[in-house]
Deep mutational scan, measured.
Amino acid sequence: EDAPSSDDLEQFAKQFKQRRIKLGFTQADVGLALGTLYGNVFSQTTICRFEALQLSFKNMCKLKPLLNKWLEETDSSS
Rank of each mutant, 00 (worst) to 15 (best):
E1C: 15
E1S: 14
D2A: 15
D2M: 15
A3N: 15
A3K: 15
A3D: 09
P4E: 11
P4T: 12
P4A: 12
P4C: 14
P4V: 14
S6Y: 13
S6P: 14
S6N: 15
S6K: 15
S6M: 15
S6D: 14
S6L: 15
D7G: 11
D7M: 09
D7P: 02
D7S: 04
D7A: 09
D8I: 03
L9E: 03
L9P: 02
E10P: 05
E10D: 09
E10F: 10
E10R: 10
E10H: 15
Q11A: 10
Q11H: 14
Q11N: 12
F12Y: 02
K14M: 06
K14T: 11
Q15A: 10
Q15I: 15
Q15S: 12
F16I: 03
F16H: 03
F16E: 03
F16A: 01
F16T: 05
F16Y: 00
K17R: 12
K17H: 10
Q18V: 06
Q18E: 12
R19H: 04
R19V: 03
R20F: 06
R20H: 04
R20M: 00
R20S: 01
R20G: 00
I21F: 01
I21M: 07
K22A: 13
K22I: 02
L23D: 06
L23V: 02
L23M: 14
G24T: 01
G24S: 04
G24N: 03
G24R: 01
F25W: 03
F25C: 08
F25M: 07
F25A: 07
T26W: 00
T26M: 03
Q27V: 08
Q27A: 11
Q27N: 05
A28C: 07
A28F: 00
D29G: 07
D29H: 08
V30H: 06
V30R: 00
V30I: 11
V30N: 07
V30E: 03
G31N: 04
G31P: 00
L32V: 08
L32S: 14
L32D: 15
A33H: 06
A33C: 04
L34N: 02
G35Q: 09
G35L: 02
G35K: 09
T36V: 06
T36R: 13
L37F: 11
Y38N: 12
Y38V: 11
Y38W: 05
Y38L: 05
G39D: 08
G39L: 01
G39W: 05
G39V: 01
G39Q: 07
G39K: 14
N40Q: 14
N40E: 12
N40W: 07
V41Q: 14
F42Q: 12
F42C: 11
F42L: 11
S43G: 06
S43D: 15
Q44H: 11
Q44T: 14
Q44M: 07
T45R: 12
T45P: 04
T45N: 14
T46A: 09
T46K: 06
I47W: 05
I47M: 02
I47Q: 00
I47V: 07
C48A: 14
C48T: 10
C48G: 13
C48H: 11
R49G: 03
E51S: 02
A52V: 00
A52K: 14
L53H: 10
L53N: 15
L53Q: 12
L53E: 04
Q54T: 09
Q54K: 10
L55H: 06
S56I: 02
F57K: 12
F57H: 12
F57Y: 15
F57A: 09
K58I: 11
N59W: 08
N59P: 02
N59Q: 11
N59F: 03
M60Y: 14
C61D: 00
C61P: 00
C61R: 10
K62V: 10
K62P: 00
K62R: 09
K62L: 09
L63T: 03
P65A: 07
L66A: 07
L66Q: 05
L66N: 00
L66S: 01
L66T: 04
L67P: 03
N68R: 10
N68D: 10
N68E: 13
K69E: 06
K69P: 02
K69Y: 09
K69C: 05
W70Q: 00
W70K: 01
L71K: 02
L71M: 12
L71N: 06
E72V: 10
E72C: 07
E72H: 11
E72S: 08
E72P: 02
E73M: 12
E73P: 05
T74S: 09
T74Y: 09
T74M: 11
T74K: 13
D75N: 14
D75L: 08
D75S: 14
D75W: 07
S76M: 12
S76V: 12
S77C: 09
S77N: 09
S78N: 15
S78M: 07
